[in-house]
Design a protein around this nucleic acid. Structure first.
Length: 277
DNA sequence: AAACGGAGCAACCGCTGCTGG
DNA sequence: TCCAGCAGCGGTTGCTCCGTT
């Protein structure tokens, strides 16, 4: 390393920025059929003008069928906090304990919700403490409990911008047990804060969730098989729309049971909705 | 109604670690 | 053992949306 490795892709030749639905569809379609053995070559093979890294990120963070969508539950947030205590900023490790959640998502939630909530709790707690103890010598007590405690609880602006992550981590060490932490969340949290608006067109999610694979499925459904047949039919239509069908005929690797010629009207409708949105 | 500011989140960037030649 | 190529990870950026003035 050090000598300047060649960039992973020619940035002048790849598209950047937000993904279009067409690109999403191409990526989903390709991965559904061929998997993602090689991210680097995937964009070419899938007909995408994107960097492999970008495709990988898009798939992992947004398009993967086993993703849980929507707001984090209180339970999940508690889990994140708990895991952050033991793993620190190892977001992928934390994500691995939360099925259906991505490291990026968890990282964002941590930075936007949890850290903030924690700070407000700490502020709240610090002022309460001050009120109860009155003029009790804070430095003395802090030093007794931990050398860092004075940094975490001393004063109104406990968390500095630079290393607030570290400090919050240290702050956790002050909690006696996890139940205290959970209680704290309940206490500090305002219910409306948990309701992160997530108003992406449900049709898009219906479409994406149509690829839920049985082994990854978090919520097995009785009618899953018929849904899969629907999805496969939909795919045939999608492929012809996207001009991918010739590749498919050459290297079909994954079993596709449904071989019907015409797509069902509802799927066609979904597709049109997606395209026209 | 318009302007502004903050919050939230998707995407990018650059580094690290693993693997195979 | 070394090196190159790759995927994966974590930090950061910048865009969009929404609430407030």
């Amino acid at each position: 390393m050090g000598k300047g490795r060649a960039p992973c892709c020619d940035k002048t030749k790849v598209k950047r920025g937000p993904w279009s639905q067409d690109e999403d569809l191409k990526l989903i379609s390709f991965i559904h059929k061929y998997g993602h053995e090689n991210w680097r070559s995937l964009p070419n093979q899938a007909g995408l003008l994107r960097c492999g890294k970008s495709c990988r990120l898009r798939w992992i963070n947004y398009l993967r069928p086993d993703l849980k969508r929507g707001n984090f539950t209180l339970e999940e947030e508690e889990t994140i906090i708990k895991l952050h205590q033991s793993f620190g900023n190892k977001w992928s490790k934390i994500a691995s304990k939360l099925p259906g959640r991505t490291d990026n998502e968890i990282k964002n939630v941590w930075h936007t919700h949890l850290k903030k909530r924690l700070s407000s709790y700490i502020n709240h707690n610090a002022s309460d403490e001050a009120a109860t103890k009155g003029s009790l010598n804070r430095e003395e007590t802090s030093q007794e409990s931990s050398p860092n405690a004075s940094r975490s609880f001393g004063g109104s602006n406990i968390v500095s911008k630079e290393d607030d992550d570290v400090q919050i981590g240290e702050t956790f060490e002050c909690f006696q047990d996890y139940s205290e932490l959970a209680g704290m969340l309940q206490e500090v949290d305002k219910p409306e804060l948990l309701e992160i608006p997530f108003d992406i067109d449900p049709d898009v999610w219906n479409f994406i969730n149509g690829f839920q694979q049985p082994e990854n499925s978090l919520t097995p459904r009785a009618h899953q098989e018929s849904e899969e047949a629907e999805v496969d039919k939909w795919f045939k239509n999608l492929e012809s729309e996207l001009g991918l069908e010739e590749d498919n005929s050459q290297q079909q690797e994954q079993p596709n049971e449904a071989k019907e010629e015409s797509p069902s009207p509802s799927l066609l409708e979904s597709y049109e909705l997606l395209i026209n949105h």
